[in-house]
């Protein structure tokens, strides 16, 4: 059922899930991921279709785009993050939804982004889907490794402290604004870089790629996978991206079933699939 093309989409989903997870690990419900994803994708689409486009592009050029996208999204996130991160809970969530919509309309209206049709004919760094699997897989491995390291680091512990109690953590001398901003910027960079890979994989890019729907779907990755460990959003992203495809045999009912999973998942697994208790048991398990 699963082919390499779907596997790429699943890995991209996991990366986006991680991007939503990072601010949440510091207690911030930010839904800005699709905005930065769209910025990254648009940047890659613009850069790689300049001049007379060859159908292939070197891996080095793609890495260059990723570097640029990371820089651009980091700068944007710094600019936006400072005012926005003063907001709490649902206010933060809605202001980041606003950001997503503003970016979407901007991409639709700007004179150089191809309007409704978008940018097409994006050159390919790989001839086979397997290339994308290896490339995005390495990116996921790197992001996962960093997250694993983060949990044990000073920054990671500060993030967890803010998530548990922001006021108390401030009293303990944690520079909360800086920690929250760091998480936000890291999330934006990850989304931007993912956008670059997605633009090449999708062959085309348009304003519809970073929409409110994406914000909610990626949030669902984190909630269903579990928001207490970086593995939660990864597994949530992999499973939920594959789900509509795996549900193809049920035909017209598949979106109804997909909705039921989102509806009932949190009811039965309020902490998500990957809970701290589960990880603890796994860690203590001796074969």
């Amino acid at each position: 059922m699963i082919d390499n093309g779907l596997l790429v989409q699943m890995i991209l989903g996991a990366l986006l899930g991680l991007s939503v997870y990072l601010p949440m690990a510091a207690g911030q419900l930010s839904l800005a991921t699709p905005a930065f994803y769209a910025v990254g994708g648009t940047l890659a689409a613009l850069l790689s279709t300049q001049g007379d486009t060859p159908s292939a592009i070197s891996l080095g050029a793609v890495l260059g785009e990723m570097l640029l996208a990371a820089g651009l999204t980091a700068a944007l996130a710094l600019l936006v993050g400072l005012p926005v991160l003063r907001l709490r809970g649902i206010y933060l969530a809605i202001s980041t939804i606003a950001l997503v919509e503003i970016v979407r309309v901007a991409i639709l209206n700007l004179p150089f982004t191809g309007g409704a049709t978008g940018i097409f004919g994006i050159p390919q760094p790989f001839q086979q889907p397997l290339g994308y699997v290896l490339f995005s897989g390495s990116l996921l491995a790197l992001a996962g490794w960093l997250c694993q390291r983060l949990e044990a680091s000073r920054l990671g512990r500060s993030m967890a402290a803010i998530r548990d109690d922001e006021l108390a953590s401030r009293c303990m001398g944690i520079h909360t604004t800086r920690v929250k901003l760091t998480a936000f910027v890291a999330s934006a960079m990850l989304a931007g870089v993912t956008g670059v890979v997605a633009a090449h994989y999708l062959n085309t890019w348009n304003a519809r790629q970073g929409s409110f729907d994406v914000a909610i779907t990626t949030l669902a990755f984190v909630i269903l996978g579990g928001s207490r460990s970086w593995l939660g959003p990864v597994i949530g992203g992999l499973l939920l991206t594959a789900l509509p495809e795996l549900l193809r045999p049920v035909g017209d009912l598949r979106l109804v079933l997909f909705g039921l999973v989102i509806l009932l998942g949190p009811v039965f697994f309020p902490q998500g699939l990957i809970t701290p208790a589960l990880l603890e048991r796994l860690g203590r398990w001796k074969p």
């Binding site: 949030l219 109804v256 909705g259 009811v267």
Partner: peptide
Amino acid sequence: AEPLLSLITSLGAGVVLVNL
């Protein structure tokens, strides 16, 4: 449970409703 979860469950309810 975290109130945040109801964002997702209510959205799921919406998806089911619209598709029905």
